[in-house]
């Protein structure tokens, strides 16, 4: 009995904080806009008895989803988000792997400090950190000032309000999510495996590609999902650092919701986004599961 109670806790949590809100969003996505509060119809009125429940369900339709297919803004935004998320993930991996590797190779007494440094940015608000990047990347920003004073460039580079700034922002923000799982797999790797590889005729770099890399694969996969999944729906970074031409679904969602006050269409956009995300989330879970089996 107590065991069931224990298992029930996370499920109740999921039910209350994920499933019920999701069902509400689905419901809104099937409704119609209305200039009222809340800005959609129908609303469920239980006082009318069985008949009003039937009327309620009859008023729901897939109109908004059909609408999403008629305007090419939406699928372009989805595709562009996928592209930006994928490229950012690869960039984060390229930056994060060497950092994780260096940390795992550092003296054991140094490692807690290095881990601390990776996590340190979380101590200040995410929003403030992204604003700070605006100060760094703008035309009169620190980066341009530095490059100009070094004489490396003749006139300021335009970075802010371009996709480049979005990539920089995403890589910066999600780097710890890439570093930590890779570091975890590298850190527990038995050092004698590399010696064994060398003993059997591998060069140092050969041993890296044949042993270190494959053994850190679960960490790479986990890190990639942890970066890809949130950056796909990212809203703050593209709206603060990106330009008017940076198209991301998070921004579209925000505009539908707050500028157009079209809650049903915004909800439909969110539902599709969630469906797109379910695939990588399931793959991520699989990877974790496999990793656990290997460890046993």
């Amino acid at each position: 009995m107590r065991r069931y109670a224990l298992i029930a806790v996370p499920y109740l949590w999921l039910l209350a904080l994920f499933l019920i809100p999701f069902l509400i969003v689905v419901k809104i996505s099937l409704s119609d806009t209305e200039v009222s509060i809340p800005p959609y119809t129908p609303t469920l009125d239980l006082s009318g008895g069985w008949q009003s429940v039937k009327d309620f369900f009859a008023a729901l339709d897939f109109e908004n989803f059909v609408f999403l297919t008629t305007d090419d803004l939406y699928w372009k935004a989805y595709l562009s988000s996928l592209k930006i998320a994928a490229i950012s993930t690869v960039l984060t991996l390229i930056v994060g792997y060497p950092i994780a590797y260096g940390m795992a190779r550092a003296e054991e007494s140094w490692r807690p400090t290095l881990l601390m440094l990776v996590i340190l940015p979380f101590w200040t608000s995410f929003l403030i950190r992204v604003y700070a990047w605006m100060g760094i990347l703008s035309n009169e920003g620190y980066l341009n000032q530095l490059l100009l004073s070094l004489g490396l460039i003749g006139e300021p580079l335009t970075i802010l309000n371009t996709n480049t700034a979005v990539y920089i922002g995403i890589v910066y923000t999600y780097l710890p999510f890439m570093i930590l799982p890779i570091y975890a797999t590298l850190e527990r790797m038995d050092g004698s495996l590399l010696e064994a590889a060398e003993d059997l005729g591998c060069s140092r770099s050969g041993a890296f590609w044949l042993v270190t890399m494959p053994l850190s694969r679960p960490g790479i996969i986990a890190g990639c999902f942890l970066v890809f999944i949130p950056s796909l729906g990212e809203f703050v970074i593209p709206s603060l650092l990106g330009g008017s031409r940076t198209l991301m679904i998070g921004k579209v969602l925000w505009e539908e919701f707050f500028s157009n006050r079209d809650w049903p269409v915004a909800s439909a956009v969110a539902v599709i986004l969630l469906l797109i995300l379910i695939i990588p989330i399931i793959l991520f879970q699989r990877n974790e599961q496999k990793q656990r089996e290997m460890d046993q």
Partner: peptide, 28 residues
């Protein structure tokens, strides 16, 4: 070490966990 005509059997065995028995033996 990778050019020496010696091979070592490690105290911890140091088998490559991601490779099959066959691939472990064939590694060298």
């Amino acid at each position: 070490p990778n050019k020496r005509a010696t091979n070592m059997m490690f105290q911890s065995y140091a088998l490559f966990p991601h490779l099959s028995v066959f691939d472990n033996i064939a590694f060298g």
